[in-house]
Computed example of a mutant assay.
Amino acid sequence: MSQSIDRKSVVLIHGWGGSAQSVWNANGWFDLLRNSGFDPVGIDLPGHGDALRSHDPAQYADLASEVMAQLPNDQALLGIGYSLGCKILLEIEARQPGRFTALVLGGLGGNVFAPEALGTVVAQCLEEGIPEDSPPVAKMLARYGVSAGNDPLAIAACLRREPNPVLTPERLQAVECPVLLVSGDADTVAYPVDLLADSITHSSVEILTGIDHLHLPENKDFMAAALRFLAAS
Rank of each mutant, 00 (worst) to 15 (best):
D133V: 08
G17A: 04
D212V: 10
L84C: 03
L105T: 10
S203K: 01
D31K: 11
V146W: 03
R160Q: 14
V166R: 10
G79R: 03
L141F: 15
T168Q: 03
Q59E: 15
M68F: 07
A154E: 11
I130L: 08
L105A: 13
I200V: 15
H14S: 11
M1K: 15
V121L: 14
P163M: 00
S83Y: 02
P97R: 03
S65H: 06
E127Q: 14
D62W: 04
E127D: 14
P165M: 05
G17R: 00
L32Y: 01
Q124Y: 01
R99S: 09
N150F: 03
V189R: 03
A231L: 12
D6F: 09
P178D: 09
S2C: 07
R34H: 12
N219H: 07
E128I: 04
E91P: 13
P192D: 10
D133M: 10
A157I: 03
M140F: 04
W24M: 05
A64S: 13
R161L: 08
S19W: 03
H213Q: 08
N27H: 11
N73T: 15
S134M: 11
A174Y: 02
C86Y: 03
T120F: 11
V11W: 00
E206V: 13
L172D: 09
A51Q: 01
S4W: 09
A190P: 12
V112N: 07
R99N: 09
A232N: 12
C158D: 15
A190H: 02
S199K: 01
R171T: 13
I43N: 05
S2G: 10
L52C: 06
I211L: 01
R99D: 12
G28F: 00
V189Y: 04
L196R: 01
K139M: 10
D185R: 12
N25Q: 11
A94C: 12
L84R: 00
